[in-house]
Structure formats: C-alpha cells, structure tokens
C-alpha cells in the first residue's frame, strides 16, 4: 500500500496547482470578456480530438521537446543545481548538430549519430562551464546559466545570418541537411519522428538512474541537503560537474532531435521562439523533478499548448492564454514550499 500512498501524496500538490490556475484563468477570461467554458472545451478538443487523432499526434510531437527540456531541467534541479540555462544549451546543441550534419560528407545513420553526439557535447560543455564557474569561482549558477543564454543565442544567430547562411533561401537559416541524416518518420506520411521515441526512452533511462542507482541516490540526497551529502562522503564538486554536464547534454539532445527530426536545418529562433526550454523548466517544477513525472507533466503542458491552437480557432481567445495558464500553474506550485527545487524541503527548513 505504501508506494501508492506516496505516489498519491506526490500528486496532490500539482493537482491543486493546476486547479488553481484553471480557476484563475477562468476569472481572467471572464474579466476580458470571454466564455471560459467554451474556451476550455475548445482547448480539450484541440489537444486530444480532431480527425484521425490528428490533434493528439500534434500534442505528442510537441511533447517531445517539452519533455526533453523538462528532463534536462529536472536532472539539475533534483540534485539542487539551479540550471536556468536550458535555452542556450538547447540552441548550441541544435547548432552543433546542424553544423556536423552539414559538414560531414556522405550522410546516413553514422552522420546522424555523430551530429547527435556533437549536440550532446555542445550543450553539455556550455552547462559545464557554468558549473566550473560556480565550483571554482563561486559564481552563482542561477544567474550565470541565465545570462549565458543570451550570448549562446546571439552567437547562433550570428552564424546563420552570416557565415553559415543559406544564401539561396534568403532567410537566416543554414542549408538543409542531407535526407539520409534526417530522423526516420514513424508511419508513412505522419510528422511523428524517431526523436519522439528517443526522448521517451531517455526519460525511462533517467528515471531508472535517479530512483534506483547509487548515482541517483547521491543526486537526490545532495538535492535535499547538500551539507548532509558532503558530510557523508559524497564528492559534491564531481556530482555538480556530472549533473550539469548531463543536464546540458540532454538539452543539446533536444536540439539535435528538433534539427534532425523537424526542421532539417538550423533556423534562427526556431528553438527559442516556441519557448521549449522555459516550458520544460516549468514541467520540472510542476512534477517536483521526478523523471516519470516529467513525462506526465510534459504531455500535459504540450496538450495545453496544442489545445491553445484549437481554442484560438474555435473561439476568440488568443492561444497565448496557454502561456498565462502555465505560468499561473507554476505560481501555485511555488506556494507549496515542499514542491520547490529538488522535490523536497530545502536545507534547514525542516
């Protein structure tokens, strides 16, 4: 019985947060002259219904980067590291993936693998730099990771506007990668690609590592009380480097998945404008940084977003309401201290 009891206890907070946000969103719609019931109804249909489950597939497609970035954030948060740099790590990953895919001759699976590897390294190293600054120079990670997003974004933008620009298209983007490097489609004609499965498998692997392994135990304990873990012999510096590299590498992986599976080139702004990193961060906060929770919460936020499109088509409410709802949910999450970073009480608050 006990595992069930703990699982349910973990759900209570997020459900309260979602309920609170839905209520606040309804009030907001009434205040701005909309019918909340119609809007929410259209949102649900927009997320799950549609002809031939079209909307559900759209939700799944959207969920891949959200869940991936949610996992990237969750891995860091769970160990107590405030990585707010997912955006920059994602962009550099996507950029590195595109550059390698374009630069290597031949193409095919090997190139796709090497491009993915390059993405993992680029995202991981960018995050690792922030870890190094914190551990060696005590530069607060929370702020450094956030600030490092801007140079990363601007650097990628510079490259695709100038040296790497596809002059033929006239747009700020690289050339299209070779067909053989693109991620395989799942089913004929659909937009779902192999990357969705890659992300899902990564979540399962991460859940195993966090819950069942020695390293995962050290991460969790460091997240709950870093000083306790240190006194027990956990090497926090090594853990920090490992966790931050993994977190950044996961963000880089998402970059590769989007570039190789969806855009088939690096397009300026294509990874930042949909706010994948920030949505992922909210997902991690909503589920207390539990990897399996990331899957559920990520699907939920993806549904809220695709539902937003449906709502906009069916009613007068702009789809940006989804972003308002997501932020409100996190605000309610924040009110429940025990669902803060690391999925538990912080040092000294007990």
């Amino acid at each position: 019985m006990r595992p069930w009891r703990t699982a349910l206890a973990g759900l209570e907070g997020p459900l309260v947060a979602v309920g609170g946000a839905v209520a606040a969103g309804a009030l907001f719609m009434v205040a701005t002259g909309h019918d909340p019931l119609a809007a929410y109804g259209a949102m649900i249909t927009g997320a799950l219904g549609g002809r031939g489950l079209g909307n559900l597939l759209a939700t799944l497609l959207r969920a891949a980067p959200i869940v991936g970035m949610g996992l990237a954030a969750a891995v860091a948060f769970r160990a107590g590291f405030f990585n707010l740099g997912g955006e920059g790590q994602l962009v550099l990953g996507g950029l590195a993936g595109a550059v390698v895919a374009l630069a290597l001759p031949g193409g095919g699976l090997l190139t796709a693998l090497l491009a993915t590897l390059a993405a993992l390294l680029a995202g991981g190293l960018w995050a690792l730099a922030a870890a190094f600054f914190e551990i060696r120079f005590r530069v607060p990670l929370l702020v450094s990771t956030l600030l490092m997003n801007y140079p990363a974004r601007l650097f990628a933008s510079y490259l695709v506007n100038h040296p790497l620009r596809d002059v033929g298209s006239g747009l700020p983007q690289t050339e299209r990668i070779a067909g053989g490097v693109e991620l395989a489609r799942l089913g004929a004609g659909g937009r779902l690609h192999l990357g969705v499965l890659v992300v899902a498998a990564t979540v399962l692997a991460a859940a195993f590592v966090v819950r069942r392994t020695r390293v995962g135990y050290r991460m969790r304990m460091a997240g709950l009380n870093a000083r306790f873990a240190r006194a027990g012999g956990v090497d926090l510096d090594r853990l920090g480097y490992g966790v931050m590299f993994s977190s950044g590498a996961l963000a880089g992986l998402v970059g590769a998945v989007q570039v190789l599976g969806v855009h088939h080139r690096f397009i300026d702004g294509s990874l930042t404008d949909p706010l994948w990193a920030w949505t992922g961060l909210m997902v991690a906060l909503l589920c207390g940084s539990r990897p399996l929770g990331v899957l559920v919460a990520g699907l939920f936020f993806a549904a809220v977003q695709t539902g937003g499109f449906g709502m906009e088509r069916a009613t007068e409410v702009p789809r940006e309401l989804s972003r308002v709802l997501q932020a409100l949910i996190i605000l309610f999450v924040a009110a429940q201290a025990r669902f803060g970073f690391g999925g538990g009480e912080r040092e000294g608050t007990g």
Partner: peptide, 11 residues
C-alpha cells in the same frame, strides 16, 4: 511563503 526562486521564475 512560497519558494522565492520558483515564484520569481513564474512571475
């Protein structure tokens, strides 16, 4: 009395 960092991000 929520977590200040999470609240800041949410805001």
């Amino acid at each position: 009395r929520g977590n200040e960092i999470v609240i800041g991000i949410a805001i």
